[in-house]
Design a protein around this nucleic acid. Structure first.
Lengths: 228, 228
DNA sequence: GCAAAAGTGTTTTCTATACACCCATGT
DNA sequence: ACATGGGTGTATAGAAAACACTTTTGC
């Protein structure tokens, strides 16, 4: 087969910016590199794209290796290609953000990576351009979440309105009026009220809701304006 | 310097989806490949990322080669990495869309590429996954233009409201009420009315406007909702 | 005088926002 | 009985949408 001549191939990596929410705080999952080079520094979870792998496939694989999770919400948001970004060897990186239900994550599955969750305001310095990736992943999530119902991906199947509201407040780092919030959320028709309550965080208890998966899919592209 | 071992590098290309507007129709610029392999087929303008070049730099260079233009609005929107996407050799491609003032473009500058403008509904089949790139570039532009004032990039320095409205109608492929359109546009405060008129398209003539570059920059991130 | 495109206002509906109190329950 | 978090309604202001006629002027 013919080949392109005189072109220099480049290493291609995928990095995952993994967000989780524990019902109280929005958190980022990072790993401490256990191997040289640059051992013991905090880093995003990443890896090289394999020979017969597409980009999404590589991102899924990497996420599976770290978290043990399939079927995670993953979105490609930027390619980084500064020639100096990785001092070891020229590498371009395709960045994905992932939104996972933190309750499904179990550390044990892959503690070979020394993964750790950090609250957004307590993230340590990361290698390479990973700090910038985190900043722009967060900006992208704010942008997307203002228009599309993506934050449900961070919640368990059953969740309460106060949990959901706190999540939005975390993402936008600002308080939300809860009457207006409930009005918008219920107007969206995306939630199905359950009969059980979560009594873990108050005496009265808060009703559980489930996401209406069908409506969620069909309304995903319509702009929702949850936040302004 | 230490290197990553056992990793297979991949060719990295940039492809530009170049949109232009002639005051009447939104158009796409494509080239007829003059060289083997796959000679004489329609293609987007692309090229490989150089050894000391970042991704935006490569996109700018490629755009300059084809159009002779600097300072073009360019936005990276997706990386394509299917292992089969380029049958000649494994290549990943970082796709950018460009919005250019078609009046500034002059064919002569680089007719080595046999470039040609096509109306959106008359685009020929393109090689590789370029058809898909065009589709998603257009979707991205619709998305962006609904929220940010990017379509001015397609217009000359002085333009008329009817031209602007026709542009929006082309992008969204749907008619817009011109009283409501003018209200929104003037409310945005982005336009500065000129004293001259464009008499080329009507007897009465339409006033020229200029973009208020300062406001344009400062309001870029605020969501404008030009279209719903 | 007429054809062709530019420009102009009003009404109605909907959506966003601001705001404060009662409810249910475990201790 | 009281402390804690959950849940509820209304009034106002602003934005979007629907809608049709008059103006200018070159021919």
């Amino acid at each position: 087969m013919a080949k392109y001549l005189n072109q220099k191939p480049i290493l291609v990596a995928v990095d995952c910016i993994i967000f989780g929410y524990d019902g109280e705080h929005l958190k980022l999952l990072v790993i401490k590199r256990a191997i040289e080079p640059i051992k013991d520094q905090w880093s995003l979870m990443g890896g090289f794209v394999g020979e017969n792998e597409d980009l999404n496939g590589a991102a899924k694989r990497i996420l599976l290796e770290l978290t043990g999770l399939h079927d995670v919400y993953l979105e490609q948001f930027c390619a980084y290609g500064n020639p100096e970004r990785d001092p070891i060897e020229r590498t371009i990186s395709i960045a994905y953000f992932a939104l996972i239900d933190i309750n499904k994550y179990s550390k044990q599955i892959n503690d070979q990576y020394h993964a750790e969750w950090f609250k957004l305001k307590e993230i340590p310095a990361l290698i390479f351009d990973h700090d910038e990736m985190v900043r722009s992943a967060l900006a992208k999530i704010r942008y997307q979440a203002a228009l599309h119902p993506i934050l449900f991906e961070l919640l368990p199947k059953k969740f309460t309105i106060p949990q959901l509201q706190t999540l939005y407040e975390q993402v936008y780092d600002s308080p939300i009026d809860n009457r207006n919030f409930i009005r918008k959320i219920t107007a969206s028709g995306l939630l199905i009220k359950q009969t059980e309550k979560d009594k873990s965080s108050s005496k009265r208890g808060a009703f559980y809701f489930k996401l209406d998966r069908q409506k969620h899919r069909s309304q995903f592209q319509s702009f929702l304006n949850f936040i302004r």
